[in-house]
Amino acid sequence: MGTAVLQLYGDLGVQPFLRSVARTKSLFVVLERDQPVSELLDELDRLESDYEIFKINLFKEFTKYIVINSIVAAALAMILVVIAFKADDLISEAWEPISIAFVFLSLFPAPATLGVLSWDAGRQLKPMKARADQLEVDAGSLAGRL
């Protein structure tokens, strides 16, 4: 479950940035080659390079969280094996807090890692999104002057 939830950020979290870059690219189609757009094209290239670096860093973070979730899943699997061997034992009231801890360990890692990953990625993506928006405004104003 954790890996599937973490993949959602890659699909949803960066879409506003990607749409802004796509709109900017479409504005460059409108601009003539004799317009002074080389500076804007260079900025777009730098922005796309920064995004590629961001994706590599996000993948590294993603794999770190996959390892953490896998360790938790392995621990839960070992606990289930122990519970299976202890199935004939009497259940006392002391097991209630332990069962709550098991439920917590089963449900908490995926949303927690998604929250941490999305917060960190959003923090890294925010300056790039601002640059993409400004580049879109600059290209739009240049296209409007044609």
Results as ranks from 00 to 15, higher is better:
residue 1 M to E: 09
residue 1 M to F: 12
residue 1 M to D: 09
residue 2 G to L: 13
residue 2 G to I: 07
residue 3 T to R: 06
residue 4 A to W: 07
residue 4 A to I: 05
residue 6 L to D: 00
residue 6 L to C: 02
residue 7 Q to L: 12
residue 7 Q to A: 11
residue 8 L to F: 04
residue 8 L to W: 07
residue 10 G to F: 00
residue 10 G to E: 00
residue 13 G to C: 11
residue 16 P to I: 00
residue 16 P to Y: 01
residue 17 F to W: 01
residue 17 F to Y: 10
residue 21 V to T: 11
residue 21 V to K: 10
residue 22 A to G: 05
residue 22 A to W: 07
residue 22 A to D: 12
residue 24 T to H: 12
residue 24 T to N: 12
residue 25 K to F: 03
residue 25 K to Y: 05
residue 25 K to T: 05
residue 26 S to W: 09
residue 28 F to W: 02
residue 28 F to A: 02
residue 29 V to G: 10
residue 31 L to F: 08
residue 32 E to T: 06
residue 36 P to N: 05
residue 37 V to S: 13
residue 38 S to N: 12
residue 38 S to K: 13
residue 39 E to I: 07
residue 39 E to S: 09
residue 40 L to T: 00
residue 41 L to R: 15
residue 41 L to N: 12
residue 43 E to F: 02
residue 46 R to G: 11
residue 46 R to C: 09
residue 47 L to C: 01
residue 48 E to P: 01
residue 49 S to D: 15
residue 51 Y to C: 03
residue 51 Y to G: 03
residue 51 Y to H: 06
residue 51 Y to Q: 06
residue 53 I to K: 14
residue 54 F to L: 10
residue 55 K to G: 05
residue 55 K to N: 11
residue 58 L to T: 03
residue 60 K to Q: 08
residue 60 K to H: 08
residue 63 T to W: 04
residue 63 T to I: 03
residue 64 K to Q: 04
residue 65 Y to K: 08
residue 66 I to M: 09
residue 66 I to S: 07
residue 67 V to G: 06
residue 67 V to S: 09
residue 68 I to Y: 10
residue 69 N to C: 07
residue 70 S to M: 11
residue 71 I to N: 14
residue 72 V to I: 10
residue 72 V to L: 05
residue 73 A to C: 06
residue 74 A to G: 05
residue 79 I to M: 14
residue 79 I to H: 15
residue 80 L to K: 14
residue 80 L to I: 05
residue 81 V to D: 03
residue 83 I to P: 02
residue 84 A to N: 14
residue 85 F to M: 13
residue 85 F to N: 13
residue 86 K to F: 07
residue 87 A to N: 09
residue 88 D to A: 13
residue 88 D to N: 12
residue 91 I to R: 13
residue 92 S to Q: 04
residue 93 E to H: 09
residue 93 E to R: 10
residue 93 E to G: 10
residue 94 A to L: 13
residue 95 W to T: 09
residue 98 I to M: 04
residue 98 I to H: 03
residue 99 S to W: 11
residue 99 S to I: 06
residue 102 F to C: 07
residue 104 F to N: 11
residue 104 F to Y: 14
residue 105 L to H: 02
residue 105 L to E: 01
residue 106 S to Q: 15
residue 109 P to M: 03
residue 110 A to H: 01
residue 113 T to L: 08
residue 114 L to E: 02
residue 115 G to Q: 05
residue 117 L to F: 08
residue 117 L to K: 08
residue 119 W to Q: 02
residue 120 D to L: 11
residue 121 A to T: 00
residue 122 G to H: 00
residue 123 R to K: 15
residue 124 Q to V: 03
residue 125 L to F: 01
residue 125 L to R: 01
residue 126 K to T: 11
residue 127 P to F: 00
residue 128 M to H: 00
residue 128 M to C: 00
residue 129 K to M: 06
residue 131 R to I: 03
residue 131 R to M: 03
residue 134 Q to W: 12
residue 134 Q to E: 15
residue 134 Q to P: 06
residue 136 E to M: 11
residue 136 E to Y: 14
residue 136 E to P: 04
residue 138 D to C: 04
residue 140 G to N: 02
residue 141 S to E: 14
residue 145 R to W: 07
residue 145 R to T: 13
residue 146 L to N: 15
residue 146 L to T: 15
